[in-house]
């Protein structure tokens, strides 16, 4: 190696790699907003989905949250002797999408969302509560910690499976 160091053979050798990439391979990237890859089945998207039917108001999620972003108010009305969830409020500005609340929930009432373009235009929209947290076609749930949901989701696109060599 050191004998021919002065002649620039190493540079030529390196250029065979780049030329091979140029001529014999497809580009690895995709054009994002037009082409989209399937995300992981366990994607931790940036929203939280709450099921009003299953939630009992035990507040295990609020205790598990490392950021203290979940606030639960349970029946302040003592007249009818019922334990109800009055408010379920999440400050998504504080949420770090760690998924510990979903893991902690003993009643499967919490899901993480599977969408990832969730910028808000008004600061007030960051704090979501009650009906804004329910599942809807615009807010699909992800399979994180819910294996049955994960089975139904489309398979993740992997870069390993992408054919890069030109035939």
């Amino acid at each position: 190696m050191s004998k021919f160091e002065r002649y620039g053979l190493g540079i030529l050798k390196g250029m065979t790699v780049t030329i091979r990439q140029l001529l014999l391979r497809h580009p690895t990237v995709v054009q994002y907003p037009e082409q989209r890859l399937n995300t992981s089945r366990r994607i931790r998207g940036n929203e939280l989905i709450w099921s009003r039917e299953r939630c009992t108001g035990c507040a295990t999620c609020a205790k598990a949250c490392p950021q203290g972003a979940i606030e639960i108010v349970t029946s302040s009305n003592t007249n009818n002797n019922k334990y109800e969830v009055e408010t379920y409020r999440v400050d998504t500005g504080y949420c770090i999408q760690c998924g510990l609340c979903v893991e902690a929930c003993p009643y499967d009432a919490l899901f993480l969302g599977s969408s990832y373009e969730r910028a808000k235009y008004r600061r007030g929209d960051i704090v979501q509560s009650d009906d804004a947290l329910l599942e809807s076609p615009e807010r699909p749930a992800s399979g994180y910690y819910h294996p049955r949901l994960a089975e139904k989701m489309p398979e993740q696109t992997l870069l390993i499976d992408k054919i890069t060599e030109k035939r």
């Binding site: 995300t39 366990r42 994607i43 931790r44 760690c98 998924g99 993480l112 992800s142 992997l158 390993i160």
Partner: peptide, 17 residues
């Protein structure tokens, strides 16, 4: 490619937790 595999495991690509 490694990050794809980690995404499959944990659902995120940088802060795996």
């Amino acid at each position: 490619k490694v990050v794809d595999l980690f995404e499959m495991l944990s659902g995120q690509r940088l802060t795996y937790n």
